[in-house]
Computed example of a mutant assay.
Amino acid sequence: MSNGLAIAAVTAIFKNLLEDGLVQNTALSSMGNVLVTTLPPDQISVGVDGQPQLNLFLYQVSQNRNADLGKSDQSVHHQTSIEKDALPLLAVNLHYVLTAYGNKDFQTEILLGYVMELLHQTPVLSKARIKAALNHIATINRSGLLAQAIESTSVEALTEQLDRVKIASNLFDTEQMSRLWSLFGGSYRPSITYEVSMVLSESQKSLVKSGFNSQVLNRPRIHKVIASPSTNGEIVTGSSLIVYGKNLKGDVTQLRLNGGENLLEPQIVEYNRISFKLPQNLQAGVQKVQVVHQQLYKYKNSKDLEVVSNEQTFVLQHPFIDNNPTMLL
């Protein structure tokens, strides 16, 4: 990931997931407010009158075993001399220990049980959920350290970089858990360990040196172009087309036909889909389309600041003329 907020953002999203799950679970209402924290275990002290608490602590960062899966996508990063200098992807897993604290009978057991059920039902956080969590984090406490840091970038950029967050339980045996708590130096409490992946980190080295934006690392990719269902599958002048792909939505998203200078305004822009209308002056035959991203504050400036997708072809058909219209008698 090209943003240094990646690890903090994942921890905050994980914490937000736990808080939402506890609030929505009516079975926990008898416990009152359950505090969710992200502190080192040796800094937590629950007294006689203390409220029930869940603590999420990041205790290790390790290399992701599936890092090689991303190498196939790196081929698009070698189309310019700027991108050839970029460092390889850094893929990591984040390891958390989730601990329940309570001062009444069965509080810790109940908390752990519901949390395990919640995370079992939510193995993957979608982009929509990640974006919603980041928006909440950025607005609920604007004076907070993370909220101010997010303000320096954008929720949209951070969401795109995180892609999908996967959460998997990693249950330890007694010996492993004992070793873990001996490192913490705190009093042992019932805990569960989780592994979160994948967080991808891409170097900005070549981009900073050359003045390019990190959008190069999130290059749009077109997979296919089809006719809109409203045109009965026909691609003719004036009809609407649908572009399917990945990372299609940018600050300013437009389309380029056949390498021309004039860009088309799309009708609908989504992360994996764009709808646009073909101009009337195109000649029949093979056409090429590209998705073009420009930064909002650099819009209409130098063409060198564009981030473009691969080219995808489609065939523009000749208009059909019926030479034998039905005669009305």
Rank of each mutant, 00 (worst) to 15 (best):
M1V: 09
N3Y: 00
N3W: 01
G4D: 12
G4R: 08
V10T: 09
I13S: 00
L18Q: 00
E19A: 03
G21H: 05
G32C: 13
T38N: 15
S45D: 06
D49E: 10
D49T: 12
P52D: 05
L56A: 05
L58I: 05
L58T: 07
V61I: 15
G70M: 13
T80I: 00
T80A: 02
D85M: 04
A86Y: 03
L90A: 14
A91L: 10
A91T: 13
V92T: 14
N93A: 08
H95P: 06
V97S: 04
V97H: 04
T99N: 04
Y101V: 00
K104E: 12
F106S: 13
L111R: 02
E117M: 12
L118H: 02
P123G: 04
L134M: 07
T139F: 07
G144Q: 09
G144E: 09
A149M: 12
A149L: 14
L158M: 14
L158D: 01
T159I: 07
E160K: 15
K166D: 05
I167Q: 00
N170A: 07
D173M: 09
S178V: 05
S178E: 10
W181K: 06
L183A: 10
R189M: 10
P190I: 13
V199E: 03
L200Y: 03
S203Y: 11
S206H: 01
K209Y: 04
K209C: 00
G211V: 11
N213V: 10
N213F: 09
S214L: 06
S214P: 02
V225Q: 12
I226Y: 05
I226S: 14
N232Y: 05
E234V: 02
V236S: 11
I242Q: 08
G250F: 06
V252L: 09
L255V: 06
R256F: 02
R256K: 11
G260T: 14
N262F: 09
L263G: 03
I268Y: 08
A284D: 08
Q287Y: 02
Q295S: 12
L296K: 13
K300W: 04
N301F: 07
Q317G: 05
D322F: 01
L328I: 14
